[in-house]
Design a protein around this nucleic acid. Sequence first.
DNA 1: AAGATTATATCTTATACTACGATACAAATT
DNA 2: AATTTGTATCGTAGTATAAGATATAATCTT
Lengths: 141, 141
Amino acid sequence: MDKEVEVLNHLWTDIYYQLRYNHQEKITHQGIRILQVIEKEDEVGIKEIANVIQVSHNTASEHIKRLLGKKYVFKTRSSKDERKVILRLSEIGSDVLHRHSNLDEEKLKEILFEQMSDEERKLILEAFTLLWERAKDVRNS
Amino acid sequence: MDKEVEVLNHLWTDIYYQLRYNHQEKITHQGIRILQVIEKEDEVGIKEIANVIQVSHNTASEHIKRLLGKKYVFKTRSSKDERKVILRLSEIGSDVLHRHSNLDEEKLKEILFEQMSDEERKLILEAFTLLWERAKDVRNS
DNA sequence: AAGATTATATCTTATACTACGATACAAATT
DNA sequence: AATTTGTATCGTAGTATAAGATATAATCTT
């Protein structure tokens, strides 16, 4: 059981190491984590950021200031509560995030459509969908 | 075709977002990249590091100095060429890297062994192995 | 063996990132 | 009107990032 988990992790990291984008612009660790949260959650404000990356609200505010300066994110305000900021990714921010967390589209295309049969491609998609389904509501300890 | 690639990337990033480790110690972006290279390649020295993360050799040397200070890596020297440093991950470094790139073992166990049938688990392993096989020798543009 | 090359290390300098306490302020709640 | 909430800014401080200049030891070249 531990063995199988270990194998899967090895496959996971190897695949990412091989298929990720090579060219990566300068961005900090905290920057990426923040962009990820904004992309994956909705209605994210300063407080949520501070919570997720475990820093004080003022530090979170500073991080957002830098990301704003780089045009990676932009702010809107909640219509319900005018104090509350709602952060969204700009197109640039979205691109930067993808180049740091997605698999390289060119490489994926080559693998899926040049090196695989329709059967094999279907297997991959099925397996990922299944894992995604089960991952959605795993308890978050 | 583009659509399928996009879907797969979406699944990939969602799965990672859900299943990664929550507790992450302080480490910089460059730090992680360097640990990854040391883990995935062999006989890595200062020059290779500089090359992969695209900085000058002196900057790479400084990075390694910091990682040494944190006991994430240790140095040996090549027996063939005594000038050449060979970097290896310490146990601590290996742990830190895993908490930043692997899927959370506890979550994986729960999903694979509590929420899946033997059939389903087999499907996942098969698909990942297939993708891994094909990813190994994709051209690195 | 002398000179050139290679691999790394160190020093200096400059800028950016990270983090937090203190303070401020406007919107919302009581 | 007073309090709470969500965010922003200022001051301060430590660390990270990066590269040029310089140094050193091992290896290769001639």
